[in-house]
Design a protein around this nucleic acid. Structure first.
Lengths: 245, 245
DNA sequence: TATGTCCATATGTCATGACAAACGCTTGAC
DNA sequence: GTCAAGCGTTTGTCATGACATATGGACATA
């Protein structure tokens, strides 16, 4: 596959397998390695880079998990055909849009402390009536309303009053506050717009909306965020890549 | 964490790491290991089971990828809080429903060879106008129409005429035919029902529908299936678990 | 009391070596 | 000519050993 000469920095804190994976990914995205093309076998690659085979395997595994490479025993490893789309990750809509080069604008409709209803309490592992942050926002792209977002957070996780949420996304701020989200559970569905939603999103009552509910957990398994979102389906859709292992 | 005594069968063709992962998963689902509880460290576990640490790590990694366990360096590995839902996998709706204990019924509306339109040709990596299988079905659960499914397949992949598609699912048949699907790309959205869809699904025209488009690739990177599906949102939703790695 | 340092602990990374199993091609037998 | 057996290639699995690094508590210090 000769491809570009990969460089390794053994003094870097970035793990070697990750350095290799990054450079492979770039080569694939740039087309330096063509779709369908087979890459060298693991043993040869490892030797050429001065790595052990387990490390080389780990690097390849990263891209296999991303759906960019496919392994076949006895045959080799090759680049997957078709355009590579980024899979659904533990990011927010704000991150998604920023990555796509768009500039989202966010309008905070309401923020404050409320009593958790049954749904919110269950999802956040609290008792009903407990004090939680409630955050309601409207997101625009190109002056068009794209999503109506209602999030709930335990009060001991973060102080929402101290944040300017119209500038940065909620997730970006949580990360900056040292909150590490490790697992999230999502439910994607659809329903007709309520009167309020229709008004906010510039649609008619009953117009189809794409909905998403998400509960995010930190690395201690504690629920840190629960959100109910509604999207205009003509402006947004969820894309994901599934990999069978 | 003492937990149940895991058993290993070294003569089995099932990999050791997988045997361990399976038994761990069962213990977690059954509650033998409580949510939030820390499991023993990798070295001790490996020693107790007579395994090497890499193998033990590989077993744990399987469950970390599923979002059931969380690792913390310097601390340990613990069971995630909250109910575990199965993540979106490379399965079909038929599989999903069967796994949930329901008995889906399928009605084949039309099956035959057609010329690929632009969309189909692009997704299946064919030229426009090429001969492809077209399969249109309606899926019921408890006598209620749940989904309208329109799938396209390259003619050289399988012979749909030879199959009874009302009994087994399309994916089950593809697997039985030796077709291995490794990667799939999905796009989930929403829109209003067309007149035809409304009639088939027992809804009104313009009623919100949940839509999914999927292109599946085999292990050679060849597109083997493209489908456009529409679901009744009151009966179906997509659930997925995201894991940050 | 508050803060910084040290240390035990557990996971993260990496190397080396070995055998197993699947795939695809070639070769040989009938 | 067709089919089966054999073989090389490549990934899959597993063992052993070592050092790095983040975490959280104990302890010493200001």
């Amino acid at each position: 596959m000769p491809g570009p000469a990969f460089t390794l920095d053994r003094s870097s804190p970035v793990p070697l397998y990750f350095q290799v994976a990054e450079q492979f990914e770039r080569a694939i995205l740039e087309g330096t390695i063509a779709p369908g093309e087979r890459i060298d076998n693991e043993v040869a690659l490892a030797q050429r880079l001065g790595l052990s085979r387990p490390t080389m395997r780990q690097a390849i595994q990263v891209l296999v998990d991303k759906g960019m490479l496919v392994r076949k025993r006895g045959v080799g490893t090759q680049v997957v055909h078709g355009k590579i789309r980024r899979s659904v990750e533990l990011t927010s809509l704000h991150d998604d849009l920023s990555a796509a080069g768009q500039k989202p604008r966010t309008e905070v409709i309401a923020v404050g402390r409320v009593e958790a209803d049954e749904d919110v309490a269950r999802e956040l592992q609290l008792t009903k009536g407990a004090d939680v942050w409630s955050l309601e926002r409207l997101r625009f792209v190109d002056r068009q309303p794209l999503a109506h977002m209602h999030n709930y957070l335990p009060v001991d996780v973060v102080d929402l009053d101290a944040i300017d949420l119209s500038e940065t996304g909620l997730y970006a701020h949580l990360r900056a506050s040292g909150i590490v989200m490790r697992v999230a559970r999502q439910r994607i569905g659809a329903r007709g717009a309520s009167v309020d939603e229709a008004r906010l999103l510039g649609e008619r009552k009953g117009a189809p909306l794409l909905t998403m509910q998400r509960t995010a957990y930190d690395n201690a398994g504690r629920a840190v965020e629960y959100g109910r979102h509604a999207y205009r389906p003509d402006l947004y859709a969820f894309e994901l890549t599934l990999v069978d292992r």
